[in-house]
Nucleic acid binder design. Sequence first.
DNA 1: TCTGGGGTCCTAGGACCC
DNA 2: TCTGGGGTCCTAGGACCC
Length: 420
Amino acid sequence: MYALVDCNNFFVSCERAFQPELEGRPVVVLSNNDGCVVARSNESKAMGIKMGTPFFKVKYLVDQGRLVVRSSNYTLYGDLSARVMSLLSEVAPKLEVYSIDEAFMNMDGVRDEDLPGICRDLIKRIRRWTGIPVSIGIASTKTLSKVANHFAKKYKGYRGVCVIDTDEKMRKALSLTPIDDVWGVGWRGAPKLEAAGIKTALDFVQRPVSWVRDRMGVIGVRTWSELQGIRMVEEEKIEKRKSICTSRSFANNISDLDELVLRVSDFAGKCAEKLRKEGTAAGTVGIFLYTNRFREDLDQYYPTATVNLDVPANSASEIISAALKALRYVYKPGYEYKKAGVVVTDIVDSDSIQQVLFGLDGQARERDDKISEVMDKVNTSGENLLRLGTQRPGHYADGIRREFRSGLYTTSWADLIEVR
DNA sequence: TCTGGGGTCCTAGGACCC
DNA sequence: TCTGGGGTCCTAGGACCC
């Protein structure tokens, strides 16, 4: 069986773990730049605030004292996530961390009748040791464990754990699950299915497989099978990532090339750091620029450009210079840019890199590796204290708005540096 | 005024080959 | 007038996830 563990309202719960006065109150957490709502407490959900709502649309509620708001504090969330995952790994024979707040425990080898008890104990332990409330859904496939998890969250009676382990329970659960709640059915697919008369997951599985394949392809068939207890979603392979992207929206529009050079350098430097952390190197460096698509009064421009490296690289200097080359290639003055990003692809293991004639010679590469190593040691907290000359100097000048951020409760030395 | 960020996989269509 | 057939590889874009 799979046990899907999902942290309840994760970012809000992290804030509450260190600010207990937020318990019971409507709370939302905002995206970067305080742009839009990315997490809601049950109370703010009940007020009708939707995921993704732009903050300016609910700001009046904050002004009226009816809603509490926090900027996102990813340093804190990442740290609490690691603590939760570590507790899960003590119980699960195999653990697949699926996202910052979610993990599949593969419980093969554990007796089915022991599962609910194990999971209830786990919930208590996680709550006591991290302050984070979690729910657990148990079933034979990942997609069904997602369904079970919804029920565990929704109905108090389950005390945090819902099990789907018989055909009757499966049928009942599917009949009570709206089609757009099914994992793998997105906001585009759901209306199509509803138009075909499919309202619930049960309606869906009652269609013949050929019907599903014609309309939804192999992905649809996978979901259709999983909902009936046939495992189709593979075990996560612990593979290196195939692409790495660092991008941000800007608090204010940027038109100036020099300003973009600083931001893009930062993104590229961050990509290089992520590559080194995984022990990989990238053969291609790409950048993209976006103007603000919501500003219909302004000219729009969404250019992309890529640069192929002669030899895959992961040093800040090489990734940054490639990214800047791409930037200068597509940059046009006269546009108001709202967002930019760097994407590195064609990723290989760094120890598999073969020297070729036109790459850096051995000495230069060795020097670059040493510089990178020093940067990684200093930049351990995730803050770019040490950068190359093209990167923006100064620690807090990353141009991201965080008006409502709480303290860095679990990583206090970073707090000290921020105060300096 | 103000609208997130980081991934994966699949598919259709074009380029190219014989 | 009439203009092959089959394969691979790559890329851009769409759809989905959190």
